[in-house]
Amino acid sequence: MAQILLIEDDQSIRTSLALALGRHGHQTREADTGEDGLRMLASAEPDVVVLDLMLPGMDGFEVCRRIRAKSAVPVIMLTARGDDFDVVGGLEAGADDYVIKPVQPRVLDARIRAVLRRGTFAEQTQSDRYRDLTIDRAALTVTKGDQQLALTPTELRVLLELSRSPGQVLSRMQLLELVWEYDYLGDSRLVDNCVQRLRAKIEDEPARPVFVQTVRGFGYRFGPV
């Protein structure tokens, strides 16, 4: 069972989603404004935040930014169908994934379970060091110099997948399958925005990345080592 914080101002949507998530085995706390959601986040310590972007007062974009400033909790945003502005803005604010309204509970449940699995991924090898970056695959921690980095489960999983075979190129579609568990044509913006946030944390110069490199027309690779 996952503890879900649902931030949604529409009462009918909020109630129906909470009931549906309950049937899927989750326990949900509800907030109807971004301000209330942030207060609940501090006390509830949820496993996942499901966040509507169009909120009264403080909108979902600002809520997501404030969550990311102090927490690595996975955020799944609820966005209007086909609204690219919502999708891009939400991902840039730090969301891990998105579900399009009207929300299908089974789809939301699948995305919740997928994002939770990213934080439980482990390998047999203990740790690898690349220059000043240490990836402990057993403890699922990343250290740069002597500072442990606060990566979200999605950022961590992207780094683990890319660094598993340094120098090997992974396409955006491959990363969508490995990290987000999309088994169909997914949204490559999920990958690009996550890589951008990851670079901001692990690279000395994010605009000139050493660890997570872009291979134009193909995808990304980890290296040089």
Rank of each mutant, 00 (worst) to 15 (best):
G34H: 09
F121E: 14
R14A: 14
R199L: 07
D128I: 12
D187K: 02
P153K: 01
A139Y: 04
L19I: 10
D97K: 00
D146G: 12
C64W: 03
S71M: 02
N193F: 06
R23Y: 08
F218G: 05
T79L: 02
T15Y: 13
G37T: 14
L51T: 13
D109L: 00
Y182R: 01
V225L: 15
R129E: 09
T141S: 14
Q124H: 15
S171T: 11
E62N: 06
S171K: 00
L170S: 09
T33G: 06
L116N: 06
E205S: 13
R14L: 13
W180E: 04
V87L: 02
P153L: 01
L108T: 14
L178R: 10
D96A: 00
L190A: 08
G167Q: 03
G119L: 08
L133K: 02
E181S: 08
R221D: 09
Q213C: 07
K101T: 13
G34F: 09
R157G: 04
G25Q: 09
V158S: 01
T214C: 14
L55H: 14
D59P: 11
L156H: 01
L116P: 04
D59F: 07
P224W: 11
G219D: 02
A93R: 02
S163C: 01
W180F: 02
V63R: 07
R221G: 10
L116M: 05
W180V: 00
M58C: 11
P206D: 09
A207P: 03
E123K: 13
I100G: 04
H26P: 02
D59W: 09
D187F: 03
A139G: 04
V215N: 03
L159T: 02
G22W: 08
P153M: 02
I76W: 09
I4R: 07
V212F: 01
Q213S: 06
V88Y: 03
G22I: 08
L151D: 04
I4F: 07
R221E: 04
Y98N: 05
L55A: 13
M1N: 09
D52V: 06
V191R: 04
T120P: 07
G25S: 08
M1F: 03
S165G: 05
V99C: 05
S16N: 10
F121G: 10
D32M: 08
R208C: 03
P166D: 03
S171R: 01
A18G: 13
